[in-house]
Design a binder for these strands. Structure first.
Lengths: 186, 186
DNA sequence: AAATATACTTACTTATTAGTAAGTAAGTGC
DNA sequence: GCACTTACTTACTAATAAGTAAGTATATTT
């Protein structure tokens, strides 16, 4: 059983990734959890503070995941990273980077900074894995690790969005293409 | 000199791509154009109707562009398509597909349909160019045309978003990578 | 048992939202 | 010169937004 505080973050996270930061309200959370508007303000002084907490929670989840994956091969780690995005589709959600990045100009400063830090964290990890993988000859790619990293994060972010617009197979196409691109040729 | 009606669409389009559909208001448009709130309602009965008009205008602009490009080589046409996305960054805007797709669940039905139609239109055009280009041996790629199309549209949509989050080079990296991928190997 | 902290609710405020009803001034058609 | 349309403004409404001040019930500490 989660604390009310943690439940608020979970619901806010879902609402942000389903509807976007500017389309969800305290009333949405309150009605879902059967509490009052003011109870959310008791735990989070403002929407900006709650929004930042949602990003922080995602960063922590990401760090947990990478630790869990750390004994896998480089290819398997990238595949697990890609699969993490795919899981969002099941809940009719996009990733937090796509949901918040598309509204970046409207976000409070504290959220902007936290989101930028989150992106740096993800990028640093992915580039390191890609470089290690190439050294260990577990994966291969015909571009720089930075370029491959940007191609992967961009591809996954956007294909979740586009799969809502078309009832189609953008995610599957992009996923397959990216994994084929890093697969070691024999 | 544009008509007020057309000016409203231009401003709404900019606001959507700068702030998102749920973060702009009639007041934003009214103050920019020095008209009253109600004047916008005179031209567009509801925000949904205005939103749909914005997408329709983007579709028309896209069709104009593809006509202008039609005598170029396949490679040049894809390059022009990619450059069309890049132009958005100068105005601190993302593409309309990213701006509206990320809020898809919150859009009125008429806008959802128009956005889906716009995506189909773009995809049909791009796949055709990619297939033609391969036949004419002007371009090459080691995946299906559908996969390459999804990789291009995803990459461009997301890199505009991510370049706001990082003050970095996602767009340039993705652009270079994608063009290299379709370049004919000699 | 008294004091204090925790986790809320009740009741409210102020600002902003899309949207509307009624009026007006400047043309256009006949 | 009268009817009608176009392109608005004025003045408003109802709903919803985030946020707050004050009160309350329950548990914990001293």
């Amino acid at each position: 059983m989660l604390s009310t505080r943690k439940k608020i973050v979970v619901i806010a996270d879902q609402l942000i990734r389903m509807k976007g930061y500017n389309a969800f309200s305290y009333a949405d959370i309150a009605s879902t959890l059967n509490i009052k508007n003011a109870a959310i303000h008791y735990h989070f002084q403002s929407k900006a503070v709650l929004g930042k907490a949602v990003i922080t929670a995602s960063r922590e989840k990401f760090k947990e995941n990478t630790t869990l994956w750390s004994n896998k091969s480089s290819f398997e780690q990238v595949a697990a990273f890609i699969e993490m995005y795919s899981n969002n589709r099941k809940n009719n959600c996009i990733c937090f980077m796509g949901a918040l990045g598309s509204s970046f100009n409207t976000l409070p400063d504290a959220m902007k900074q936290e989101l930028t830090d989150a992106h740096d964290e993800i990028t640093v990890w992915l580039i390191a894995i890609l470089k290690q993988g190439k050294e260990k000859q577990e994966i291969d790619y015909d571009m720089t690790a930075e370029e491959m990293s940007d191609l992967i994060t961009s591809g996954m972010l956007a294909s979740l969005i586009l799969d809502r617009v078309t009832k189609n197979t953008v995610l599957d196409n992009v996923k397959r293409t990216l994994l084929t691109r890093i697969e070691k040729k024999k």
